[in-house]
Design a protein around this nucleic acid. Structure first.
Length: 309
DNA sequence: AACGTATTCAACCGCACGCCG
DNA sequence: GCGGCGTGCGGTTGAATACGT
């Protein structure tokens, strides 16, 4: 492994304002030693996670709290899975990234044992290059304009298209059209109409990294709803994401015109239906195939078929 | 073997948000 | 409403390592 390096060695970017926990003289930086790992892991096992700021002092570590937390979360936690990313994990990362963009923590939350840092690194070092080599823009997941298809082996392209890409989806809660280009101005326009993503019960959102148009559309709506009503929607989000992850789902919606979700109230027998409160209306996001739809509510069936298929 | 370049990934940074007094 | 604190996020860095000449 790497040498720990001098305790005062400067790493990372910038020399500007430092966070309080890292400004103290005598705080060690750089790679962790096995001894430090042992101290930290033992302490967290005994005392539990949290109180990271005061943890170094209590545990007798010459580290800042943020560094301790990062080391625990990304390396020492028992649930952290080490080793190579499996093909199915890679496939999942690709599909989740297409939906969520650079929401590494959200993506990591769907892949057991993998950390956001690990997935982020894997994306930047492997997957983004892989997509580029296949003529896919890793930022938008759309074809690169200047890419020569002949430069990629056909079997590679076929494999990727077949196993990884879902058909283009038009989400039922979309109220504005999504431009085919992932142009920044388009994103701003979309932001303006749907509102910036807000902090939610799921996690805090950084507003600066909404790079994926599809994910932007979805998360804007979810985030807005979460923020407006401050409800605990982690399970709802999870099930909604599950439904989005199904190819069948995307197949059902990729052709249809948009409809305001408030216009549509799915039959109660529809499984995986996701409800959101927004303003005075309840927004319903159907998340399954129409063939499972209850025929008991004919009105809903008509709406469903007319507007969402 | 020696050197230069590319790649990997652990660790750092600033910032944003929720909570609480 | 305001400010401090704790926490978590995504972007970036750079030492270690791998690879090529």
């Amino acid at each position: 492994m790497r040498d720990p390096g001098p305790a005062s060695a400067s790493r990372g970017k910038g020399t500007g304002t430092t966070t309080p926990c890292c400004s103290k003289v005598g705080i060690k930086r750089g790679p962790w030693t096995p001894e430090e790992d042992e101290v930290l892991a033992g302490f967290v096992r005994r005392e539990g996670e949290g109180q990271w700021r005061t943890l170094p002092k209590r545990a007798g570590l010459q580290r800042c709290g943020k560094s301790c937390r990062l080391r625990w979360m990304n390396y020492l936690r028992p649930s952290v899975k080490r080793g190579h990313i499996a093909p199915d994990e890679e496939d999942l990362i690709l599909r989740l990234h297409r939906l969520l963009g650079n929401r590494w923590s959200l993506i990591a939350g769907r892949i057991p044992g993998r950390t956001d840092n690990e997935i982020k690194n894997y994306w930047n070092t492997h997957l983004s290059k892989k997509l580029i080599s296949q003529g896919i823009d890793p930022r938008t997941h759309k074809p690169l304009l200047n890419h020569n298809p002949s430069s990629s082996p056909a079997h590679v392209q076929d494999n990727y298209n077949a196993s990884t890409f879902t058909p283009k989806a038009t989400y039922p809660n979309r109220s504005v059209p999504v431009e085919e280009t992932g142009d920044e101005n388009d994103l701003k326009a979309v932001d303006g109409q749907l509102g910036q993503p807000q902090n939610s019960g799921v996690q805090a959102h950084n507003n600066k990294n909404w790079q994926n148009v599809e994910g932007l559309m979805m998360m804007n709506s979810l985030g807005q709803s979460y923020a407006d009503h401050n409800c605990n929607n982690e399970d709802i989000f999870s099930s909604f994401l599950d439904s989005l992850m199904e190819d069948e789902y995307a197949n059902q919606y990729h052709r249809g015109p948009t409809v305001h979700p408030a216009q549509f109230v799915p039959a109660v027998s529809l499984a995986s239906t996701v409800s959101f409160n927004h303003g005075n209306a309840t927004w319903e996001l159907p998340g399954l195939r129409p063939e499972t739809e209850s025929l008991g509510d004919q009105q809903n069936a008509v709406l469903y078929n007319n507007h969402l298929l």
